[in-house]
Design a protein around this nucleic acid. Structure first.
Length: 870
RNA sequence: GGGCGAUUAGCUCAGUUGGUUUAGAGCACUUGGUUUACACCCAAGGGGUCGGGGGUUCGACUCCCUCAUCGCCCA
């Protein structure tokens, strides 16, 4: 059979993905097996695959494929998120390009455009996930705004309202003047910004005196309703009870006192604009101040401002300065850095604004979630995120769930003519309630006005662990889900709220484990971004290196919770590994098999050893997976395949050039290969399927995806240490060859003076791998030979006196010095009575063993040096 | 300003409740090697006073304090 010398991923990827789909291998239905469920964090419906998705979904696919092979009923539920504000912003932009203004559209018309957009772009990302090999159950694909999900969202709102947990409140919110909607605190990003600090003086009423305040937002003086000083500030005690005049608008406002004021900052005198600053608002409430809202929703100045009406807030900040200057109110202007909040979605500066919104009370319902994360009922990996979580949960604020958008679940609140309202799942139900409430039996649906607002996107996605399952029997079987894999950046947006919802609505946790991924950054630790051009397209990488290579490339260095510094050398390393596996397969399949020849001893031993090695590897792998150390698990299979299997095992059994291999060894090797492919499969699904299918004749419908993961077989573990000694011996001979420039094809003789724990078990392999003409056990040192030590045994390669005595002595003395230094350290410990007295016995015994070994080596080395010096 | 975390080889990271030979891995680097699966390869090698200082202990990369630097979250 002729096999290409390089693996060609593109040829096999589409083929096997189609095969898996045709065979319905991703699909799960409840049965008697233990379920293993992952809810895929839904990407935005109009999104495209980026490196973050790639990392995230690779990890999920690894977990789900492994669980499937471990006999569980694995179900990975995919879907897309309507992403209300993000999608609406995109639709608004596209309409603008077509010359359409959102304002000119009715809600229905706008939604038509939005659906058109989602139909066009929606689901592209799911197709892209298939390219990377995602084994999700596509038959269960959901959309957060489809009928089933919407029903769940509305139901939950009504339920929470009826429990008294939802209320309407006028509060200071984060207002996005571009999207014209309120945002939750989590949707605001604070950025350091270079600005100015303006010192403005306000005339005191009935006096020629002034007070000076400092502000970063001079335009807001138009909304000032007080000036505030600290009660203990002696500089201002004489102003108590006086009033000042707001510049330009000449409004008379009181001077109040409050401990909130920082005496050190600015002039110690603070202007209060309750409508446009959260802290000012609170002070305003406390002191019963008037609230003057000087901004329109879009960030221009309103009639209430009296001046600059209709102009943009940032324009006014500039143009008000000369006006103030002219009026003699500017004292000085300083450079000042402060933090300004920006909308996560539209990137405009948010405006604190008073507004009526719907809130969900968080304090009570978040308690079970906090408790069950802290006691590890829900486990976080890595656990350090528990602290972050606790901090947020202990200071949780009520959740503003309403958004002034069209794209989303419209709030099920229906207003009557008199502005009282009812909350119901359907219009019909609402009408019934309204009739009862008003006592008017003649009301019709047309008399009810549904609230214009929609719900925050997260108010639908926090329910997904259960609304993700439509049939009750599915929900009963799959819920709670097993693992959640997501970025730590949405721990509050999503993870915390899902846990809250799980306990609130189901009385049970939504998932048992949360694996947090880091962010994918470039080598300079910069975030991946379009403008920097440092964000590779995962699909291009898949084209270039193959999906398996990109998958494992991402994982080589991706600790849980830590950022992944991506570089193209990583998929390249992945490709190299894929090729290594490919070529090992090519080697094995290329051998001619002869079932009449006897199995060599060396092969028998190599098989016994590798059996034990594989056993140990499976144990290590299980341990890594149990701790969610995915990178370590990958590195384990990487090393075992490349180092142990390819470089040691295959070399040990390899027949001489153009000689056949015995049938028994071939059979064992194919079994090993089969097992190696299985443990590799979750990481590299395509290549392993390709080779597994080629390893032997398979029946239609068979797949490596559904065979069992190898389990620990109880192999002889003592062989492992003996083999490590063999490796050292082979290395020793290689060093001799290198030092003397003796090519591999010239056979050498080797004599061994055995020490403690020596085993000759692997001598046949040693003979083969070191290319020895003879291998003898001796009772005394060999003259005229180059020597090296493995543990306490001494190995001699006779050189017919062709050795450089000086060099040999130097080499041995160096080793001697090292051993003596080591012994000194050991003796220092053992010489310390307090150590011997207080350390555990086992530790002391270990030190004594070290001492004995070191002394034996020193003795041998000293003698050898003396011999050479003779 | 408050909180959380990090600092170990050139880079990215392990190092599990303090004691497994005087700290490990991958990549990178240096040297040598190609008729015999793979140069997307094989073999060998160099490289770290575990951020600085102090403390606890018989013993500290590991625990405590402090300083420095960086990152993240929240205000």
């Amino acid at each position: 059979m002729e096999i290409a010398s390089k693996y060609n991923p593109s040829a096999s990827e589409d083929k096997w993905y189609k095969y898996w789909m045709d065979q319905k291998l991703f699909h799960s239905e409840p049965d008697e097996r233990e379920p293993y469920t992952i809810l895929m964090p839904p990407p935005n419906v109009t999104g495209v695959l980026h490196m973050g998705h790639m990392l995230n979904n690779t990890i999920q696919d690894i977990l789900i494929r492994r669980a499937r092979m471990m006999g569980k009923n694995a179900c990975w539920v995919p879907g897309t998120d309507h992403a209300s504000i993000a999608t609406e912003a995109k639709v608004v932009n596209r309409l603008k390009e077509r010359g359409i203004d959102k304002k000119d559209l009715t809600r229905e018309e706008f939604l038509e455009h939005a659906y058109e957009w989602t139909d066009e772009y929606g689901g592209i990302i799911l197709k892209q996930l298939q390219k990377m090999g995602a084994s999700a159950d596509w038959d269960r694909k959901y959309f957060t705004m489809d009928e089933d999900r919407s029903e769940g969202v509305i139901k939950s709102f009504v339920e929470l309202y009826e429990k008294g947990l939802i209320y309407r409140g006028v509060r200071m919110v984060n207002w996005d003047p571009a999207a014209l909607t309120a945002l939750s605190d989590e949707e605001v990003i604070y950025k350091e910004q270079q600005g100015k600090l303006y010192y403005l003086r306000y005339k005191i009423e009935g006096s020629e005196e002034y007070v000076t305040i400092a502000t970063t937002r001079p335009e807001t003086i138009l909304g000032d309703t007080a000036v505030c000083v600290h009660p203990d500030d002696e500089r201002f005690t004489h102003l108590k009870g006086k009033k000042v005049i707001v510049p330009l608008v000449n409004r008379v406002i009181p001077i109040i006192q409050d401990e909130y004021v920082d005496m050190e900052f600015g002039t110690g005198c603070l202007k209060i604009t309750p409508a446009h600053d959260v802290n000012d608002y609170e002070i305003g409430m406390k002191h019963n101040l008037k609230v003057i809202d000087i901004f329109n929703d879009n960030g221009t100045l309103s009639e209430a401002a009296e001046l600059f009406v209709g102009e943009d807030r940032f324009e006014v900040r500039k143009s008000i300065i000369p006006t103030l200057e002219e009026a003699g109110n500017i004292v000085k202007i300083e450079d000042y850095n402060n933090k300004v909040g920006y909308s996560e979605r539209t990137h405009v500066a948010i405006e604190p604004k008073l507004s009526a919104q719907w809130y969900l009370k968080m304090d009570e319902i978040s308690k079970p979630a906090l408790e069950n994360v802290m006691n590890d009922t829900v486990q976080f990996h890595p656990a350090k995120f528990k602290n972050v979580f606790r901090h947020w949960m202990e200071n949780v604020k009520d959740w503003c769930v309403s958004r002034q958008l069209y794209w989303g679940h419209q709030i099920p609140v229906y207003y009557l003519e008199d502005n009282t309202f009812v909350v119901a799942e359907t219009k019909e139900k609402a009408l019934e309630m309204a009739k009862e409430k008003s006592g008017n039996a003649n009301l019709t649906i047309a008399d009810l006005r549904q609230d214009d607002d929609v719900l925050d996107t997260w108010a639908s996605s926090w329910l997904l662990p259960f609304t993700g399952f439509e049939k009750p029997e599915d929900l009963a079987y799959y819920y709670p889900t097993s693992d959640l894999v997501t970025g730590h950046d949405i721990i509050f947006f999503w993870v915390a709220r899902m846990i809250i919802a799980g306990y609130e609505f189901k009385g049970e946790l939504p998932f048992k484990n949360v694996y947090f991924t880091g962010m994918v950054r470039d080598k300079q630790r910069r975030k991946m971004s379009k403008s920097l051009g440092n964000s590779p397209d995962p699909l291009d990488l898949i084209d270039k290196y193959g999906a398996d290579s990109v998958r494992i490339g991402m994982l080589f260095c991706s600790p849980a919770g830590g950022d992944l510094l991506f570089d193209e050398s990583q998929p390249e390393q992945g490709r190299n590994f894929a090729n290594k596996i490919w070529n090992a397969f090519r080697l094995v399949k290329g051998w001619e098999i002869d079932d009449t020849i006897e199995q060599p001893e060396s092969a028998k031993q190599a098989i016994a050893w590798f059996d034990a090695k594989l056993d140990q590897t499976i144990e290590t792998l299980d341990d890594h997976f149990s701790k969610y150390r995915i990178s370590d698990a990958l590195m384990t299979v990487y090393t075992v395949f490349w180092q142990e299997f390819s470089s040691w095992y295959l070399e040990a059994i390899k027949p001489a050039y153009q000689k056949p291999l015995d049938a028994a060894t071939y059979k064992a090797t194919c079994e090993f290969f089969d097992k190696m492919l299985r443990i590799l499969h979750p990481f590299m699904p395509f290549l392993t399927e390709e080779l597994w299918q080629a390893l032997e004749e398979r029946k239609e419908g068979e797949s490596i995806m559904t065979v069992d993961m190898p389990t620990v077989s109880g192999a002889d573990a003592s062989l492992l240490d003996k083999f490590e000694m063999l490796k050292e011996a082979v290395g020793g001979v290689r060093n001799v060859r290198k030092g003397k420039n003796i090519p591999m094809k010239d056979a050498l003789a080797l004599n061994i003076l055995s020490g403690d724990g020596f085993s000759d078990y692997f001598n046949p392999i040693l003979t083969k791998l070191a290319n020895l003409s003879e291998l003898n056990m001796v009772n005394e040192k060999v003259e005229g030979a180059i020597s090296f030590m493995v543990r306490t045994s001494e190995y001699f390669v006779p050189m017919d006196g062709l050795i450089d005595v000086e060099e040999e002595i130097k080499k041995l003395e160096k080793e001697l010095a090292h051993q003596q230094g080591f012994l000194k350290g050991v003796m220092k410990k053992l010489g310390n009575e307090r150590f011997v007295g207080s350390a555990p016995e086992a530790v002391v015994a270990k030190e004594k063993q070290k001492q004995a070994d070191a002394e034996a080596k020193i003795k041998t080395l000293t003698e050898s040096i003396a011999n050479l010096k003779k």
